[in-house]
């Protein structure tokens, strides 16, 4: 039996965007200039985890699901270039990227059901835009599947998944029967770079596109939140720069100044 791995991947604003190019206006966030979006960093780690399982397992297929309204195809195809087999875009005006994860959970759940034969879903631990860290957990609850979060190592062994989870002061190993949802963290390691062959192969792949209607989702999910306001946070700090004749002098003066202010 082919092991069917689904990876969820979200297209997000580049989190490395400098603060100066980051705009918050009219309850929306945008970036100045032509800074292209990226695949959410943790989701690239999810792709990496899936590819490692595929390599270990042999007979496996990796399908990438991405939910959104507008896709930059050369960006969202990166998981294919890394080695994933198929790409399904859940694309609809109703799938607007919002702080409310309800719609994304409904769309991904419906798509996983529509694919039908999925054994394991691997997601990044959170997306770098809203930092909600709840879509994968919502998908697991909606499907009634087991879930393990913040993995640094994921292994599929004979109908079960074994995940080494990162803890603040160590790690733990958990196990669940498939089907299951797993999230991965940066501790998994650097995702592989696409090679030229992968990039050429990705270019030839036509993504499948499913709308809300294709997923029988019209009006299915009632929103959990209404956005009241979105703004740049106020920063009240007055910074005092300590200078000296040279760097060592500045270091000495810093200690004296901290003592003066009774910080030390």
């Amino acid at each position: 039996m082919t092991l069917h791995i689904v990876v969820t991947a979200k297209q997000v604003l580049d989190p490395e965007t400098p603060l100066s190019a980051f705009n918050v206006a009219d309850n929306a966030v945008s970036t100045a200039g032509n800074i292209p979006p990226v695949v959410n960093g943790y989701d690239e780690q999810a792709v990496e985890a899936a590819l490692r399982i595929k390599e270990a397992h042999g007979d496996a297929k990796v399908t990438v699901l991405s939910c959104g309204t507008d896709f930059a195809l050369d960006v969202i195809k990166k998981p294919l270039a890394m080695g994933a087999d198929e790409l399904v875009l859940l694309q609809d005006a109703a799938f607007e990227n919002s702080i409310d994860p309800t719609m994304a959970v409904a769309a991904l759940t419906a798509a996983i059901r529509k694919l039908g034969d999925v054994d394991i879903v691997i997601s990044g631990r959170q997306a770098s835009d809203w930092d909600n860290a709840q879509v994968p957990l919502g998908v697991a609850e909606s499907l009634g599947w087991a879930v393990a979060t913040i993995g640094r190592k994921v292994q599929v062994l004979d109908g079960t998944v074994r995940v080494e989870r990162v803890l603040p002061d160590g790690h733990e190993t958990v196990e669940a029967s498939l089907p299951a949802v797993v999230t991965v963290s940066n501790e998994l390691g650097t995702p592989r770079y696409p090679n030229m062959r992968g990039i050429m192969a990705a270019r030839r792949v036509q993504p499948t596109v499913w709308s809300a209607a294709d997923l029988d989702l019209d009006g299915a999910a009632s929103p959990a939140f209404e956005l009241v306001s979105l703004k740049k946070p106020e920063r009240a700090v007055q910074t005092e720069m300590i200078t000296g004749d040279h760097d060592a002098d500045a270091g000495r003066k810093l200690a004296l100044r901290l003592r003066e202010e009774r910080v030390l």
Binding site: D131, F225, V228, K231
Partner: peptide, 15 residues
């Protein structure tokens, strides 16, 4: 805080 602290959101819970 959202967008890694670059913005702050207030939401009303509807359920």
């Amino acid at each position: 805080p959202v967008y890694g602290g670059n913005a702050e959101a207030s939401v009303a819970c509807l359920g």
